[in-house]
């Protein structure tokens, strides 16, 4: 059974409209005009159990609205969804026992109290036995390296430490699925890495499914196998992260370091030289035009290679490219 099944999900919000100026303010006081915003247009996708799925998009793309509908907080305007076999907005409480949630911008830990107090409270809320809860807290505090943090009032923790506690708290009741909304927002590089490691570990060891929204491409590369990219409430791209790279990332970057000094002549057909030094070179080429083989052959012929790195450009660029493409398509349609 798939963990999440979504068909033609749609959500429209009502908003007030007003022109600028005091006159318009007065007018709208007595005769307001309303407009509607389609936060989610028509969304269909599926997520297997135990999968780590990335849900990516710029601000206002409809990510949070979707998550809210999938947890049963928000009723959709139209469409259907099943999460772990439940219809979220009809069976919110039953579903809540099976899933965990973390909202990066909405801490669930009690701010003035040590995280341990919230953990114990959550144990009660999810109806765990005291002994069971204790064992689980023990386990999670090791997995997330929280041993020294649990007895400190949450307000005194750093953002990264706090977020680790948040994610751990969401796993207390062994959910089959966790929904993480921007878990790495505002964190520094090391803290992000820590969170990602812990999430990956829980996915591998306990098979918990992870639906992750983020606008950090790094989260995707580190965690997800598959990605859905949304914009303006619609899916603009859905595929494996690897094939995403393959399709949109035909550009390769190569950096070579040689054992001995070499001649500076690296002109190869179809290759752009980025930097040349006495011991090495950095270059870029389109792998669909020029074969990797021929480039490497050329490079190794130039001298004894001490080190070589072949890399893809960061995923941010890819997503930007997809957005541009989707935008261009929508302009074409109009």
């Amino acid at each position: 059974m798939p963990a999440i099944q979504v068909q033609n999900l749609q959500k429209t919000f009502q908003t007030k409209r007003k022109a600028a100026g005091l006159g318009a303010s007065m007018k709208s006081l007595f005769k307001p005009e309303y407009g509607s915003v389609e936060a989610v247009r028509s969304l269909s996708f599926q997520m297997e159990s135990g999968e780590v799925l990335g849900f990516i998009g710029p601000n206002g793309a409809g990510k949070s609205t979707t998550i809210k509908m999938l947890t049963g907080i928000l009723h959709p305007s139209r469409g259907a969804a099943k999460v772990l076999g439940f219809t979220p907005w009809l069976e919110r409480q039953s579903l809540a026992f099976q899933i965990g949630t973390v909202f990066g911008q909405r801490p669930q830990l009690w701010y003035h109290l040590p995280a341990m107090d919230t953990f114990i409270l959550f144990g009660k809320i999810y109806e765990l036995d005291d002994a069971e809860a204790k064992k689980r807290i023990q386990f999670l505090s090791e997995a997330f390296e929280l041993q020294d943090l649990l007895d400190v009032p949450v307000r005194k923790l750093s953002l990264g430490q706090r977020m680790r506690c948040e994610v751990a708290a969401s796993l207390l009741h062994r959910p089959k699925l966790i929904l993480l909304d921007e878990p790495s927002i505002g964190l520094d590089v090391v803290a992000k890495q820590n969170i990602r490691d812990a999430i990956r570990r829980m996915n591998q060891e306990e098979g918990v499914g992870v639906l992750l929204t983020s606008h950090d491409a790094g989260d995707l590369e580190a965690l997800c196998k598959r990605v859905i990219i949304v914009n303006h409430g619609q899916i603009v791209y859905e595929d494996k992260v690897s094939s995403l790279k393959r399709k949109f990332l035909t550009t390769k970057m190569v950096e070579v370091r040689y054992a001995k000094e070499v001649a500076k002549d690296f002109s190869i057909h179809g290759v752009e030289i980025l930097k040349v030094g006495r011991y090495g070179v950095k270059l870029k080429f389109d792998a669909s035009q020029t074969s990797v083989d021929s480039v490497l052959a050329h490079l190794s012929a130039s001298g004894d290679m001490a080190d070589i790195t072949i890399s893809d450009p960061p995923l941010e660029e890819v997503i930007a490219k997809i957005y541009e493409q989707a935008k261009a398509e929508s302009v074409d349609k109009q």
């Binding site: 809210k68 947890t71 049963g72 907080i73 919110r92 409480q93 899933i99 949630t101 809320i125 999810y126």
Partner: peptide, 12 residues
């Protein structure tokens, strides 16, 4: 909207 975050736990 914080009612949303209170709602996603199994309690009334």
């Amino acid at each position: 909207g914080s009612i949303a975050y209170i709602l996603n736990k199994p309690y009334d």
